[in-house]
Amino acid sequence: MKTATPNKPHWPALPRPRQIVVVLIISVLIAWVTTPIFQSPFWLVLRRTTFIAMVMLLAFTVSGTWRLQWMPRWIPRWLVQVLAICFLAPFASLAAYVAIAGNFMNFIKANNLLSGFATSTIFAIFFGSIVAVVAINREGKQRERADRLQLELEKNALEREVLDARLRLLQAQIEPHFLFNTLANVQALVEVGSENAAPVLRHLIAYLRAAMPRLNDADATLENEMQLVSAYLEIMHMRMPDRLQFELKLAPELNSLRFPAMALLTLVENAVRHGIDPGTESGHIEVGGRQDASSGMVTLWVTDTGIGMAETAVPGTGLANVRARLQAYFGKDASVDLHEQTPHGLRVELIFHPGAKA
């Protein structure tokens, strides 16, 4: 069986294609400017300039990648690269002119080549240092941007993990709270020997079969939530048919809105347990939602005509978790407001913008 050959990594000491293209363009410009000075054909000057520039580019990349063992760590990388260019500039110029003369002895004997060599060396050090400083400055800025981007990505990933962990914790607190309260309602029917105990238990089992797969559903929608609310209120209506009536009024355009699972159901359960159940009169629960066309703000509400909220009442875990989960989904501006109803009862409103980010 053949094994895949791994891709060879790029050797960092070698110039990148983009660097080579830039150096070639600069070589053409320098050759065009200096041709009158050397009084030589343009193509000869270009060939010599390109050779020197490529040698200096290699010196730039190698010196930026390698750090000699004897070199103190306090010496900055940019200084090493500039010194490497200045050091190799005379040797690159010498090699170019020796190639033109044919051999070293001919080069020594030709005075015009010696003067050209000196001029080329000065130009190489001058232009090479300028280009190197500009390239180092540009690389530094790119490195800073890349570091900032990487830091921002890591920060966002960490915030996402913290947010997910927070949502899981809050939902884990709500799920047993709802389940045990619902089972307590069934227990109460059984203890008083109500004929509705068996039907309610059957509906509860069917309800839990539908609800349990959605408890950890990160993609739950308001339509899913209203289905659970409806099933729950049907069970509560069977438990106390003469004392509980309910109505659902969710705007159809909100059905597909992403929403934290069981958040609205927690408010409905509180309305039944703390509003309707303790009273002696018949009560009514309304669950609805609408979206403001101009601002885009969504308002969900749960109203009941129960006993209302006592002045000394302290919001429980369920309400605190709903507020925390709502803000985790829709940002810190999302709110949970409580309003007393006239003549009695309570209205809980969830207000948020669906496009807001946590």
Rank of each mutant, 00 (worst) to 15 (best):
residue 27 S to E: 11
residue 219 D to L: 05
residue 87 F to I: 14
residue 225 E to C: 01
residue 155 K to A: 09
residue 328 A to L: 14
residue 82 V to K: 00
residue 16 R to P: 01
residue 175 E to C: 10
residue 337 D to Y: 04
residue 153 L to M: 07
residue 83 L to E: 01
residue 328 A to H: 10
residue 244 L to Y: 05
residue 21 V to M: 10
residue 31 A to G: 13
residue 333 D to A: 14
residue 349 E to R: 00
residue 187 Q to G: 11
residue 300 L to V: 05
residue 348 V to F: 04
residue 289 G to I: 04
residue 133 V to I: 15
residue 219 D to T: 10
residue 188 A to M: 13
residue 47 R to C: 15
residue 349 E to P: 00
residue 108 I to Q: 03
residue 128 G to R: 00
residue 271 A to L: 09
residue 94 L to F: 13
residue 356 A to Q: 11
residue 300 L to G: 12
residue 81 Q to C: 11
residue 334 A to M: 12
residue 228 L to F: 05
residue 92 A to F: 04
residue 106 N to A: 15
residue 138 R to D: 15
residue 71 M to A: 11
residue 26 I to Y: 05
residue 3 T to I: 05
residue 307 I to E: 03
residue 53 A to S: 07
residue 139 E to T: 14
residue 291 Q to M: 15
residue 295 S to E: 10
residue 84 A to N: 02
residue 358 A to V: 05
residue 321 N to T: 11
residue 235 I to V: 08
residue 104 F to L: 12
residue 245 Q to M: 08
residue 53 A to M: 02
residue 5 T to Y: 03
residue 33 V to S: 13
residue 262 M to I: 09
residue 1 M to P: 10
residue 295 S to R: 04
residue 298 V to S: 11
residue 166 R to M: 13
residue 36 P to Q: 11
residue 268 V to K: 03
residue 169 L to E: 15
residue 260 P to R: 10
residue 301 W to A: 05
residue 285 I to K: 03
residue 192 V to T: 15
residue 150 Q to S: 08
residue 209 R to G: 03
residue 124 A to D: 15
residue 269 E to G: 03
residue 33 V to Q: 06
residue 13 A to S: 10
residue 163 L to R: 15
residue 357 K to Y: 09
residue 293 A to G: 08
residue 143 R to T: 15
residue 177 H to Y: 13
residue 276 I to M: 05
residue 10 H to C: 12
residue 137 N to K: 14
residue 82 V to H: 00
residue 206 A to D: 13
residue 163 L to Q: 15
residue 175 E to K: 03
residue 256 S to P: 06
residue 317 T to K: 00
residue 165 A to H: 05
residue 222 L to C: 03
residue 63 S to L: 11
residue 175 E to G: 04
residue 252 P to H: 08
residue 327 Q to C: 02
residue 128 G to V: 03
residue 135 A to L: 09
residue 10 H to P: 10
residue 263 A to E: 11
residue 93 S to V: 05
residue 241 P to M: 08
residue 288 G to W: 00
residue 213 P to V: 06
residue 296 G to W: 04
residue 21 V to Y: 06
residue 121 T to Q: 10
residue 130 I to D: 02
residue 111 N to Q: 14
residue 245 Q to L: 07
residue 115 S to Q: 11
residue 136 I to D: 14
residue 304 D to H: 02
residue 270 N to P: 04
residue 325 R to W: 00
residue 73 R to V: 11
residue 13 A to Y: 07
residue 172 A to L: 09
residue 272 V to H: 04
residue 200 V to N: 01
residue 305 T to W: 02
residue 230 S to C: 13
residue 268 V to N: 04
residue 29 L to W: 06
residue 327 Q to D: 01
residue 250 L to G: 09
residue 160 R to P: 06
residue 220 A to N: 11
residue 38 F to D: 07
residue 307 I to N: 02
residue 144 E to C: 07
residue 290 R to P: 02
